[in-house]
């Protein structure tokens, strides 16, 4: 079966004001549909950079990136935007909800993005279904300032799920939450894999990582399976 995501010897160098710094040095990664992968690593190890390459926010300097067997290493921005909309769902450490919009409107943001058009009624059905998936359909009309941190993150997950993506990318989604709420959020993310969605979770939390199907360690720009020493 063709892997959902396949990275072959992907490299990335950050060219800041100082000396260029190699962040990723030949990363290989394969993720299949329905598979969940956790990526562990110290701060600054390149976890987020890896996620931004997979999510087409950025392009690798070297190597090859295949999505469903299709080479998208050098995809132009216009097509990358369409792919981000159709194939990926993103969850960030900060929830990035617009406080002037309701939970439902925040979720609908992923549908009103210029990639096709859904009539209001269909949009509403999809939004409520996504909110229902994460168990907060009853909060659809609430605005973010009235929601708890966990509820806000679940709204963000619903926003990521509403287009039924094939890959869910989560960048430290529990970083701003307490343990109990964090477990709820990870549970909501993991539930997506049961519907065939691939999940890549970047986290510092080894307990949360342990709930994923596979745990990888990013050290010195190289991705390796996590060892028992890593505590997983």
């Amino acid at each position: 079966m063709t892997p959902l995501i396949q990275l072959d010897a992907v490299t990335k160098t950050l060219k800041g004001q100082g000396r260029p710094r190699d962040i990723l040095c030949g990363v290989d990664l394969t993720v299949r549909a329905g598979e969940s992968v956790a990526v562990l690593g110290r701060s600054g190890s390149g976890k987020s950079t890896l996620l931004s390459l997979i999510g087409l926010f950025d392009r690798p300097d070297g190597g090859r990136y295949l999505l469903n067997g299709r080479d998208i290493t050098r995809l132009p921005e216009r097509r990358a935007a369409a792919l981000r909309s159709a194939e990926f769902g993103f969850v960030f450490q900060r929830f990035f909800l617009l406080k002037q919009l309701t939970a439902a409107q925040n979720v609908a943001m992923a549908l009103v993005n210029g990639q096709g058009w859904l009539p209001r009624r269909k949009r509403r059905v999809k939004v409520l279904a996504a909110l229902d998936q994460v168990g907060i359909a009853h909060l659809a009309k609430q605005k973010p300032p009235k929601l708890s941190g966990g509820e806000q993150q679940r709204v963000a997950i619903a926003r990521a799920l509403v287009r039924e993506p094939r890959v869910l990318l989560a960048d430290e989604p529990t970083g701003a939450l307490d343990t109990e709420t964090g477990n709820l959020v990870i549970g909501a993310l993991y539930a997506a894999t049961e519907r065939g969605c691939g999940l890549i979770l970047v986290t510092h939390d080894r307990d949360h990582a342990g709930r994923m199907g596979r745990v990888l360690q990013l050290t010195d720009g190289v991705l390796t399976p996590a060892t028992a020493r890593a505590g997983v």
């Binding site: 926010f57 921005e77 935007a81 981000r84 909309s85 990035f96 943001m109 993005n113 210029g114 990639q115």
Partner: peptide, 19 residues
């Protein structure tokens, strides 16, 4: 800035942001 970056992340093309 964050709102627009987020919109791009969920697939909004640059032209639509300008729009």
């Amino acid at each position: 800035i964050e709102e627009f970056a987020l919109r791009r992340a969920v697939g909004t093309p640059r032209s639509l942001l300008a729009g």
